[in-house]
């Protein structure tokens, strides 16, 4: 079985994100970029399924500018077999991303597609679901455990009420949650090996998918800053302070 893991290059989770001076985006100049952490978990799960002998090839796919090759190389160093970059620098929303990924999936015919449940830059949590719908295959989102046997996968999902276990037919789309696994460290000799693994670059507009966004973002603003608190001496002071503000 072939597995495809999809990854996105995002602003690193340690970075304090700042809105640019024009208010129409966030600052990326000189800012550290990394692989979306949920996608790292997707790759790790793909590798574990390969190590168990369930999969025989792990392909990583990303959509983005040529910089995204850096994250794809990291995925190859973790152990993926080959990488595909769908090169695109235009604005993209989850539906557009799902349409582009579908084109690659139709060509590669994987038995399983694993994605992060969401990307930490826009936190949309939609691409996996949309992809399953477009592909017309089952989906299991927010996975914290995956067991593959024959043509089915038993997936434990993290839902609001606790855990839910479902069985789905393969091929299918699974999105990862934080507890699924802990991604491995990249080893130095593997970084060298990764430099020689195949990485194909495909222009997004050559795929024939209509990926133009139907929604846009008009402006960005930071959340309002919290006013500093006051320390009150006694309950009476508290009541008086609340009264003064007309709150009781």
């Amino acid at each position: 079985m072939k597995i495809i893991a999809c990854i996105k290059r995002v602003i690193d989770y340690n970075v304090r994100v700042q809105i640019n001076r024009e208010g129409n985006g966030v600052v990326t100049d000189g800012v550290k970029m990394s692989m979306n952490p949920f996608d790292e978990i997707a790759i790790e799960e793909g590798l574990r399924l390969k190590e168990k002998g369930i999969a025989d090839e792990l392909i990583v796919v990303s959509i983005g500018g040529s910089d995204s090759q850096q994250q794809l190389r990291t995925a190859l160093a973790m152990g993926a077999d080959r990488a595909i970059l769908i090169e695109n620098t235009d604005d993209l929303v989850p539906l557009g991303a799902a349409k582009l990924l579908l084109k690659v999936i139709e060509k590669e015919q994987p038995g399983l597609v694993i994605l992060g449940k969401q990307a930490i830059d826009d936190d949309r949590n939609q691409t996996g679901q949309m992809l399953a719908a477009l592909w017309n295959r089952p989906q299991a989102t927010f996975a914290s455990e995956i067991v593959v046997e024959g043509d089915t996968a038993t997936v434990t999902r993290e839902v609001d009420a606790g855990m839910e276990t479902i069985e789905i037919d393969l091929p299918a789309v699974i999105t990862t949650d934080l507890r699924l696994n802990e991604p491995r460290f990249v080893k130095m000799p593997d970084i060298m090996k990764a430099k020689k693994k195949p990485l194909d670059v495909i222009a997004a507009d050559s795929l024939g998918a209509d990926s133009a966004p139907a929604v846009g973002t008009s402006d960005y603003s930071p959340p309002p800053t919290r006013e500093s608190g006051v320390i009150v001496e006694s309950v009476d002071d508290l009541v008086n302070a609340l009264k003064a503000r007309g709150l009781v």
Binding site: E182, P183, R184, F185, K187, M188, P189
Partner: peptide, 8 residues
Amino acid sequence: GPGYAPGV
């Protein structure tokens, strides 16, 4: 730890 990788 579980992800232990000795330095090269």
